[in-house]
Design a protein around this nucleic acid. Structure first.
Length: 558
RNA sequence: GGCAGCGUAGCUCAGAGGUUAGAGCAACCGGCUCAUAAUCGGUAGGUCGUUGGUUCGAUUCCAACCGCUGCUACCA
C-alpha cells in the first residue's frame, strides 16, 4: 500500500550458526532477532527484502561433537538443523531462506568462486608445516595440540593459546607437545594448501573501511586497526575429510575447503537457492549485482574480521558483487555477568524459553537490552520484570483499556471524533511522528532506541488518557468521550505498526482487534486512519503477566 | 604483551566540549479507578572507573593507570 514506487532492495545476511549444538538467548540477541527486526521493518516500509542464512555444517565444532559422541558429522547436523528451524518458526524469525552449507548448490557456488579467484591469481598453492598425529593418521589443528607453555609453564596450554597466561602461541613453541586426540607426540610434516592473497587487498580495504559512514565504532575501528597492522595471506584449505571439496585435483586427497572460506559464500549461494525456489533463477542479481542494493550483515562481535575484511576482500577479488553496506555487529549478552553458557540458567536453550514464555515476551526482553555498543547483562528476572512492567503494564494495558472502554461506551465501534483540542492534536501528530522516529532508528541499526521510542509514545498515550479521563466523561459528554477514544485508537493503530518489527504476534492481533481486514503486513509503514463506525473485534489481553515465583514453584514440582 | 570496545543513579541501560547529566525499574509522597492491583503526577537518588593534561569551561577531548569483554591471523 505504501510500497514506494521505487522500493529499495535490502539483503539481510545473518550469521550461519554451527550445527553443533542448541542456540541460547545470546545468539538470538546477537544476530537473529536484530536481523529479523530490521527485515520486518523494511518489508513493511515497502522495500524488497531478502533475508538469508543457514546452518553451517562444516568446521571443527561439528566434527568435535561427532567424534566425542561416536556419531557422524552428518548425524549431528541432522539433529540441530531442524532444531534451528523450530526457533525461527516459533520466535517469528522471518527468514526468506534458511538453508545449509551442505547443498549441491552451495558446493557449486563455492567452486565457481574458488575457480574464478584462482584464475585471477588471488588463490595460489603453498606449503606449510603442521603437526601430524601418526596414530590418528591426520593433521592436527593448533587447538588439538596440547603441551607446556614456554611462557608460564602451564602444562595444558593449547597450540593456539595458553589459557593460563593468555599468551598467543604457535604449536611448535609448546614444550612436550601431545595430540589431544590420541595423546601421541605429533610430528611436524609438510602439507600443501591453497592460500588466498589477502595481502593484495590491504590498501583497497583500508580506503573502503575508512570511507564507511554510520558504522558502529567498535566495528570500524577494529577493522581499520587490523588492516593497518598488515594483512597476511590465509590458507583456505584444511587437512580434513569433512567439508566442501576443492574443485581442482592438485592437492590430492584428504583436503577440504576451509569452513570460513565457504561459509560466507553461503550468503550468495543462499540467495541463488532462494531464486531457484521462486522460479526466477536470476532474481538474486537484484540484491548482489545492482549497486543500488543494500547489504546488511547481522553477526556477533567475534565474527567481525570475516565480514569486514576477509569476505569483502574475496568480493573485491571476484568483482561484480556488492560489498557490505553495514555490518552492525553486536557485542555479547552476559547472564548474571557471565558469558552465555549452554548449560545453565538463562543461557539455556532457546527451546526451554519457548516452552514457558510467549515469543513476543522473549523478543521484547532481548530487544529492549540489545548489546549494540557494549556487552549487556540479562537475567530471567529482568526479562520477566520488563514483561510485567513495560510490555503488559504500558503497552498491553493501553490497548486493553481503550478497547474495553470503546466496547462498553460505543458498542464496539470506532467513535466519530468531534473537534480536536491541542491535547488531541498532539497525540494525532505524535502517531505520525513515532513512526518516523522508529523508522529512523531502525534504518541506522539503533534497534533498541526504536523500541524505546515506541514505548515512550505508549506512555504518552496513557498520560493523555489520564488527562482526558474518558471513564468520567462517558457519564456526562459522550461526544468528548468519543473524541478521546478515537484519538487513543489512532495512537494504538500507529503503535501496532511501530511495534510490529519487535512484537509481530501482538501487532497481528491488534490489527484484527481494530477491525481491519487482511494482514498488517499489507498496510505498510504508516497508520492508515481509522474509519469511524468500523466494528472492532473482541479482544483478549495481548501479553500474559508472569509471576516468577509461582512459575519457579510450578517448575520445581514438575 | 598488542589492538578494539566498554566502565554514567541501588539495578539494567541512554547521552553529550558548555544553561540545574537522562530513561525504565526499585524507594518515597500524592491523584485516578476505564484497564491484566494496571495507570498518571511528583520527590529523592550520581564528585559520569582513578590520576594527570588541553581548554574560559570536561563527565564528554588527550595521556597514563585500574577493571570488564572480544580479537590477536590454524576456533570460527
Amino acid at each position: 500500500m505504501t510500497a514506494s514506487t521505487n522500493p529499495r532492495r535490502i539483503l539481510v545476511a545473518v550469521a550461519w550458526p554451527y550445527a553443533n549444538g542448541s542456540l541460547h538467548l545470546g545468539h538470538m540477541a546477537g544476530a537473529y532477532l536484530p536481523a529479523d527486526i530490521f527485515a520486518r521493518y523494511h518489508r513493511l516500509a515497502g522495500n524488497d527484502v531478502l533475508m538469508v542464512s543457514g546452518s553451517d555444517q562444516h568446521g571443527t565444532p561439528v566434527t568435535v561433537r561427532a567424534d566425542n559422541e561416536g556419531r557422524t558429522a552428518q548425524d549431528v547436523v541432522d539433529q540441530f538443523h531442524p532444531e534451528f528451524l523450530r526457533y525461527w518458526s516459533e520466535l517469528g524469525i522471518s527468514f526468506d531462506l534458511f538453508t545449509t552449507t551442505g547443498t549441491k548448490n552451495h558446493e557449486a557456488v563455492v567452486h565457481e568462486m574458488f575457480l574464478a579467484l584462482l584464475k585471477k591469481g588471488y588463490i595460489y598453492k603453498g606449503t606449510t608445516q603442521q603437526f601430524f598425529d601418526t596414530e590418528a593418521g591426520r593433521f592436527l589443528p593448533d587447538r588439538y595440540v596440547e603441551g607446556t607453555c614456554p611462557n608460564c609453564g602451564y602444562e595444558k596450554a593449547r597450540g593456539d593459546q595458553c589459557d593460563n597466561c593468555g599468551r598467543t602461541l604457535d604449536p611448535e613453541q609448546l614444550l612436550n607437545p601431545k595430540s589431544k586426540l590420541t595423546g601421541a607426540t605429533p610430528e611436524m610434516r609438510d602439507t600443501e594448501h591453497f592460500f588466498f592473497k589477502l595481502s593484495a587487498f590491504g590498501p583497497q580495504l583500508l580506503e573502503w573501511l575508512k570511507s564507511r559512514e554510520g558504522w558502529r565504532k567498535h566495528v570500524q575501528n577494529y577493522s581499520i586497526g587490523w588492516v593497518e597492522e598488515g594483512l597476511h595471506d590465509r590458507a583456505i584449505t584444511r587437512d580434513l575429510e569433512w567439508g566442501i571439496s576443492i574443485p581442482v585435483e592438485d592437492l590430492g586427497p584428504g583436503k577440504r575447503i576451509y569452513v570460513w572460506f565457504e561459509a560466507f559464500i553461503g550468503y550468495l549461494s543462499a540467495a541463488k537457492e532462494w531464486s531457484e525456489q521462486q522460479g526466477d533463477p536470476e532474481a538474486w542479481r537484484k540484491w548482489w549485482e545492482d549497486a543500488a542494493a543494500e547489504t546488511y550483515y547481522f553477526i556477533g562481535k567475534d565474527n567481525i574480521f570475516f565480514h569486514t575484511i576477509f569476505w569483502p576482500a574475496v568480493l573485491m577479488g571476484y568483482e561484480g558483487l556488492n560489498l557490505p553496506t553495514n555490518v552492525p555487529a553486536n557485542q555479547y549478552v552476559t547472564f548474571k555477568g557471565e558469558k552465555a553458557s549452554k548449560s545453565e540458567g538463562i543461557g539455556d536453550s532457546v527451546l526451554s524459553y519457548l516452552e514457558r514464555y510467549q515469543p513476543d515476551m522473549i523478543r521484547y526482553g532481548l530487544a529492549a537490552n540489545l548489546p549494540e555498543t557494549s556487552d549487556t547483562d540479562m537475567t530471567e528476572a529482568e526479562m520477566v520484570r520488563r514483561n510485567n512492567d513495560e510490555l503488559v503494564a504500558t503497552w498491553g494495558n493501553l490497548v486493553n483499556r481503550v478497547l474495553a472502554m470503546t466496547a462498553k461506551n460505543f458498542d464496539g465501534r470506532v467513535p466519530t471524533p468531534g473537534a480536536l483540542d491541542d491535547a488531541d492534536q498532539r497525540i494525532i501528530d505524535g502517531a505520525t511522528k513515532v513512526l518516523a522516529e522508529v523508522a529512523a532508528h531502525i534504518e541506522s541499526a539503533h534497534l533498541k532506541a526504536g523500541l524505546a521510542s515506541a514505548m515512550s509514545f505508549a506512555q504518552e498515550a496513557n498520560a493523555y488518557l489520564s488527562e482526558k479521563e474518558p471513564w468520567k466523561t462517558a457519564k456526562t459528554d459522550l461526544e468528548r468521550t468519543g473524541t478521546t477514544l478515537f484519538v487513543a485508537l489512532t495512537a494504538i493503530n500507529a503503535l501496532k505498526v511501530a511495534f510490529y518489527p519487535y512484537l509481530p504476534f501482538a501487532s497481528a492481533n491488534i490489527h484484527t482487534y481494530l477491525g481491519a481486514n487482511g494482514v498488517l503486513q499489507d498496510f505498510g509503514w504508516d497508520a492508515t486512519p481509522l474509519e469511524p463506525g468500523t466494528a472492532l473485534r473482541e479482544a483478549a489481553p495481548l501479553f500474559r503477566k508472569i509471576d516468577l515465583e509461582a512459575e519457579g514453584a510450578a517448575r520445581a514440582s514438575a
